[in-house]
Every structure is written in structure tokens, then in C-alpha cells.
Amino acid sequence: MQGQSADPAARPRRTRRPGGHTVRLRHRPQPPPSLSHLPHPLCREEPAVPPVEADADTRTPTPSAVSGLLDRIGDWGPVATSAGVFRLVPVRIDRDLPLVGRWMNDPAVAAFWELSGPEPVTERHLRRKLADGRSIPFLGLLEGRPMSYWEVYRADLDPLARHYPARPHDTGIHLLIGGVGDRGRGLGGPLLRGVTELLLDRRSACARVVAEPDLRNIPSIATFLSAGFRLSAELALPTKRAALMVRDRVLSDVS
């Protein structure tokens, strides 16, 4: 009816005073409580990390659907490290974009990753990775807490292969320790060592893990060295001068 509120909860209720006068009581809807104080969904106590699903609107393939080139790393489960139990969980944009975007906008990170700006900048990057299959983005969970961002990729199928003598199934790693409170604590080395050894153990066709941090990023290079990598060469890549870091399979890596 014209002029009547469409929201029944907003319509006034009538009651009567003892003297017979009608009093109108108007219900005022309260705004929903803020959820900004809640932790990232993966920090909550849940029986299991929810499965990664495709975005229905864009039909973006799930990491599980495209990670055959990398032996379905997202299904491998946790690994024990000297820093604690660690696990790589495939990125899910609807859940993880605010967190990854916040990390990318840290000035110390933006200088090397070049993904700072509004969320769509990071979102486009993640969607490209999820749709490609040669490079899979992950959150790194230490004792169940998201604290790092990883990309594991087929270096032999990547443009990087044009700049060094790649071998079949070379596997590359990009690593970002996200929160400022987690940097400078020596976590990168043990986590990188654990993931590298897991890759070499589970990907039997892979004989080397490689990385190409910016030559200016001295802390990153030091982290790779502490995890058993060696500096193999300096590369002139289209966007940077990089240190080619290589971790070869050794006898102890063979299960």
C-alpha cells in the first residue's frame, strides 16, 4: 500500500496506557555488529580448512584442478619444521584477498613484489596464477596461523627458463613473510628448508629447486642461503637483476 513502510519490523506497534490512551512504540533497527575485530578465517578453530572452490561468476579453476603440473601440492598436508608445524594452503580469493593485499601494501614488500595499490591489483595477480597452473599461490600457515605468502611454480615452463639452463621439472619458489611481527625472527630459513625438502621428497622428477630474488634484497638471499641454497649466477631479467639461487637434490633428499 502506498505510503506504508515495506519493512514490517520498522512499523510502529501500538499499546495502551492504563488510562486508555494509545501509545505508539517505534522499533529502531540496530546496525549489524562490526566484524573487523575477527581474525582471518583460517585462524578460527575449525575441524579442517575448507576446500578451495571455483569462483562461480568467473569460472576461475581451483588450484586442485590445475596443480597437476606440480603434483597437487595443496593436498600434501603439513610438514614439521624447527619453527613449528607448517602447511601450504591454496589461496582462495574470497577468503584471502584482504590479507594478501594488506601484505602487498607494506612498503618493504611493495619495493620488490610491485603489487601495491587497491585490492583489484592483487586480485588480478592471484586470478592469473590460479588460472594458469604453472604457478600456484599459497598461504603459509605456521601452527595454523596464516603468516606468509608463497608461489610454487614450474621454473622449466616459466619465462625464467629463457635466462638460465633450466632442467625438466625444475621447481621455483617465491616467498613473502607477511606480518611485520614475523620478520626478523629467523622463521624464513626453517620454513623454506622444510618446504624445499618436501618438494624434493614428493616430486621425484624434480632434481632442483630454484629461486630468483632481487639482488638488492639481501635478507631474502640470506634466507635462501640459510636453507641450503647456493648462489648459482646473477641474471638480467626484464624487470630486475636477480640472484639465481639453487638447491640441488642430494642423497639425503631421496626417500
Rank of each mutant, 00 (worst) to 15 (best):
V195I: 08
R127M: 09
L130H: 09
R167S: 07
H174S: 05
L215S: 10
S64Y: 02
P32M: 05
P33G: 00
I93F: 08
T81D: 07
D75N: 12
L176E: 01
R16L: 15
E53I: 08
R102P: 03
S204V: 07
R95Q: 05
G184R: 11
L191V: 02
D96R: 00
T22I: 15
I177W: 00
V91Y: 00
Q30I: 15
V121L: 05
L42N: 00
T196A: 13
A83I: 08
E114T: 15
P146G: 07
E234N: 04
A108I: 01
R145K: 07
Y164T: 04
C43L: 10
A131P: 06
A108M: 09
D7R: 14
P29N: 06
V152F: 06
T196P: 12
Q30V: 10
L115R: 14
Q2M: 15
P146F: 00
L192V: 12
T15Y: 15
P47I: 05
G117Q: 12
T58V: 09
D96C: 01
A108S: 05
E45F: 10
L35P: 01
A222R: 14
A166G: 09
L42F: 01
P190H: 12
R26E: 14
E123Q: 10
F112P: 03
F229C: 08
L88N: 09
G20W: 03
P90I: 06
G117H: 04
S148H: 11
R145I: 11
R124E: 05
L225M: 12
P18M: 03
P41K: 12
P90K: 03
P29W: 14
R208Q: 15
V121S: 07
V109S: 06
V89H: 00
R28F: 06
R208I: 00
R92Y: 02
S232G: 13
E151Y: 04
W103M: 00
E212N: 04
P219V: 01
P51E: 10
T22P: 09
I177R: 04
L25H: 01
D96W: 01
G186Y: 03
P213L: 07
K240T: 06
K240N: 00
T171G: 02
V91A: 09
I73Y: 10
V180E: 11
L200C: 00
P51L: 11
V246H: 03
L38K: 08
P63N: 05
T223E: 02
A205P: 09
I136C: 07
R208E: 03
E151I: 13
G68N: 05
L198C: 13
A108P: 02
E114V: 15
M104R: 10
P168N: 02
S64L: 08
A9M: 11
H37W: 12
P29I: 15
P18H: 10
A9W: 09
V246L: 11
R128H: 12
P8H: 07
L88D: 13
R128F: 09
P159Q: 13
P190L: 02
L192T: 05
M1H: 13
I73L: 15
L142E: 13
S148I: 14
P39G: 12
R95E: 00
D57S: 15
F224L: 15
S226V: 03
H40T: 07
T62R: 12
P107L: 09
W150R: 04
L38C: 07
V195K: 10
T60W: 14
E151A: 03
I218H: 08
L38E: 04
R26Y: 06
I73D: 11
